[in-house]
């Protein structure tokens, strides 16, 4: 744990604006924010743990539970919404057997809703591991997931 966290901490020593940046890096390194990592940051940088936890729970970019291997984000921006993105979220949720925000029991997939990915002309849009897939229907979203499942199998 320390081996991974300490270099991140060292990069931000003395930077007063760093809470969110540090959390981004830890989240990327562990695919969530482990408690011990935040405790280490708190101790090393004299930032109250309560403030770190406050930021960790406030901002949507951070995860408090380990994420799956694949991160599926369903864009629920306005342009996507008027073109039916809720149906896509429902379809993926049904298919994976998890609610948005959850991770499958085999730790393969985490399903997230995101308020806009900014590729509005391509809606409805789903991003899997930051690869964008646009103009989807609920059916195509299921097929897309199958393709990932086949690849992993």
């Amino acid at each position: 744990m320390r081996k991974q966290v300490d270099p991140i901490i060292d990069r931000y020593r003395g930077d007063r604006t760093a809470i969110v940046a540090i959390l981004h890096e830890i989240n990327a390194a562990f695919r969530y924010l482990p408690r011990e990592a935040l405790e280490r940051v708190s101790e090393q940088l004299s930032i109250p743990l309560s403030h770190l936890y406050s930021a960790a729970t406030f901002y949507r970019s951070f995860d408090l539970e380990p994420c799956g291997e694949h991160e599926i984000q369903v864009c629920l921006g306005t342009a996507c919404h008027v073109r039916g993105s809720e149906l896509i979220l429902d379809a993926l949720s049904r298919r994976l057997g998890i609610k948005p925000g959850e991770t499958t029991a085999d730790s393969k997939y985490t399903l997230k809703r995101v308020n806009c990915l900014g590729a509005c002309a391509l809606g409805p849009l789903v991003s899997i591991d930051r690869d964008y897939h646009g103009h989807l229907t609920a059916h195509q979203a299921e097929r897309l997931l199958e393709a990932y499942e086949d690849e992993d199998a």
């Binding site: 007063r16 604006t17 969110v20 403030h51 930021a55 970019s61």
Partner: peptide, 27 residues
């Protein structure tokens, strides 16, 4: 460059400022 953390309210000037300051964690 400063990256946001995923919070719409940070588009609001005073929340944005407190987000950069990072003082109490939450904007």
């Amino acid at each position: 460059l400063t990256r946001g953390g995923g919070a719409f309210v940070c588009g609001e000037e005073t929340a944005l400022i407190s987000s950069i300051e990072g003082l109490s964690g939450e904007p």
